[in-house]
Design a protein around this nucleic acid. Structure first.
Length: 339
DNA sequence: AAGATCCGCAACCGCCTCCAC
DNA sequence: TGTGGAGGCGGTTGCGGATCT
């Protein structure tokens, strides 16, 4: 067994000894890794290249931050995970000095349990129905009073009736329109006056931001959104990126664009985009993030979440960390729709 | 004190994508 | 255009220390 790349020679497996570490560090600091497959040979190691790479990336790199995760890092992981799912490498990019492996382990060993203890499905971040929750109940020290739903969105007093609790059924659908397209949908605005059907136990806030609204950059518009969500929204609206890239859809899958023109039929957009996707147009964005906590509005929620095909470049470059976190903002330079 | 169980984490495995040829 | 090597990534395994009984 073993990697195909190391089938030819006998390679050592298992834990690395301090001597091996020393050899690897010495070699890479003086020569760089170049081709990983040649590293073990030149470094005098009986390991496969992949193993060397992993050891360096996950353990030996000087810029690695050791030690336990801070509460802030934990929140970032949760926030980004909700958007990206198990894209550990992408998540780790938002945590300087942390590796994907570290994030993944932390998630599996700690965060996952915390979410479950709070009655949230760690996969979807949705509220687990009480009967399932009872079955899944695990010991946890987190008191009820400390439990904060991760997605309370209460817009203002007018929207009182539409306020949402845990994991509202947010549908975020990247815009099918290129930013420079003349066929862009009408600019979006907050639509607090838009009446919403009151057919369900919760209502979506039909809030969408407007590129031209300066206030849209003000996170106070969404006072109850998490930092990541706020920054996602505000950076979307303030960047050169098509500000309509993310929006909230109502439960009928219509964009809330009540100002000009017809609302979009998200289902149709899906159809179009999925057919485009099937035609191997790799950069088309064609999926949703659906958060639906209490009813089966979107029965395929899990599937859609797991098989997200966001433009990850976009998502990645759109998410900013809270101001107190160091963050390499270079990715912001790459903001672009990949159409 | 000793065995059983739990748990965190490092490392491995296998799949995928990219790219050179 | 097909093929194979290399790198990257997510899922999984299993070791070893901590905790429980």
């Amino acid at each position: 067994m073993g990697h195909r790349c190391c089938n030819k020679q006998k390679v050592k497996r298992g834990l690395w000894s301090p001597e091996e570490d020393e050899k690897l560090v010495k070699y890479i600091t003086s020569h760089g890794h170049g081709s990983w497959s040649s590293v073990p040979k030149f470094a005098g190691l009986k390991r496969c290249g992949k193993s060397c790479r992993l050891r360096w990336i996950n353990y030996l790199r000087p810029e690695l931050k050791r030690g336990s995760f801070s509460a802030e890092e934990e929140q970032i992981i949760i926030d980004v995970h909700r958007i990206l799912g198990n894209r550990w490498a992408q998540i780790a990019k938002h945590l300087p000095g942390r590796t994907d492996n570290e994030v993944k382990n932390f998630w599996n060993s700690c965060i996952k349990k915390k979410l479950m203890a709070q009655g949230l499905d760690p996969k979807t971040h949705n509220l687990i129905p009480s009967h399932q929750r009872a079955a899944n109940k695990i010991a946890c020290n987190i008191s009820q009073s400390n439990q904060q739903p991760f997605s309370i969105i209460t817009l203002d007093s007018k929207m009182k009736d539409y306020s949402m609790e845990i994991n509202p059924p947010i549908l975020t659908l990247p815009s099918p329109y290129p930013s420079n397209s003349s066929t862009q949908p009408p600019l979006l605005q907050t639509t607090t006056s838009l009446p919403l059907p009151a057919t369900t136990g919760y209502q979506n806030p039909s809030v969408i931001w407007n590129e031209n609204t300066q206030n849209s950059q003000d996170s106070s518009i969404f006072p109850c959104l998490s930092s990541i969500e706020n920054t996602l929204i505000s950076s979307s609206s303030s960047s050169s990126v098509n500000p309509t890239g993310f929006g909230l859809l109502d439960e009928n899958c219509f964009w809330r664009t009540n100002i000009i023109g017809e609302p979009f039929d998200a289902a149709k957009i899906f159809e179009v985009m999925q057919s485009q996707d099937q035609e191997n147009q790799p950069n088309k964005i064609c999926d949703t993030q659906i958060m639906d906590n209490t009813k089966g509005v979107h029965d395929n929620m899990d599937a859609s979440f797991d098989t997200t095909s966001y433009d990850l470049e976009f998502v990645d470059s759109t998410i900013l960390l809270p101001g107190s976190m160091c963050r390499d903002l270079s990715s912001m330079d790459d903001l672009a729709w990949n159409f």
